[in-house]
Simulated scan of single mutants.
Amino acid sequence: MSIAADRIQRLHDLAQEAARDGDDDRAREYVRLARRLAERNRLRLPREFRRSTCDACDAYLIPGRNARVRTRDGHVVVTCDCGQQSRYPYE
């Protein structure tokens, strides 16, 4: 793994920890840093990271607190507090 990929993983862990502690602004900053780092180094963000963050407001999503999760026919719909929806398939 590259240094950038390791740092992105570390920022993901920090964002998760900050969001669970209730510090949403700090979690959002960690998410922004990780996105910028991936962009600069032409890396794809890990699937877990992409599915647990909002593309519109960069919030770290925690179901029940700032995200709503619903299942539909063959896909999951995650709705952020800002109104942004993301969908991904499941079997």
Rank of each mutant, 00 (worst) to 15 (best):
M1Q: 10
I3M: 07
A4Q: 00
R10K: 15
D13L: 14
D13C: 11
L14V: 12
A15K: 00
Q16H: 15
E17N: 04
A18K: 00
R20F: 08
R20D: 12
D21E: 13
G22A: 04
D23Y: 06
D24N: 07
D25K: 01
R26L: 13
R28T: 02
V31Q: 00
R32A: 07
L33S: 12
L33Q: 14
L33G: 11
L33I: 10
R36W: 13
L37E: 04
L37S: 01
A38T: 01
R40T: 12
R42L: 09
R42P: 07
R44G: 15
L45Y: 06
R47Q: 10
E48Q: 11
E48H: 08
F49S: 00
R51M: 06
A56P: 04
C57P: 02
C57K: 00
D58R: 03
I62C: 06
G64V: 08
V69R: 09
V69P: 05
V69K: 11
R70H: 14
T71V: 11
T71L: 11
D73A: 11
G74W: 09
V77I: 13
V78R: 05
T79D: 08
D81H: 07
C82S: 05
G83F: 06
Q84I: 04
Q85D: 14
Q85G: 07
R87Y: 14
P89S: 14
Y90V: 08
E91Q: 10
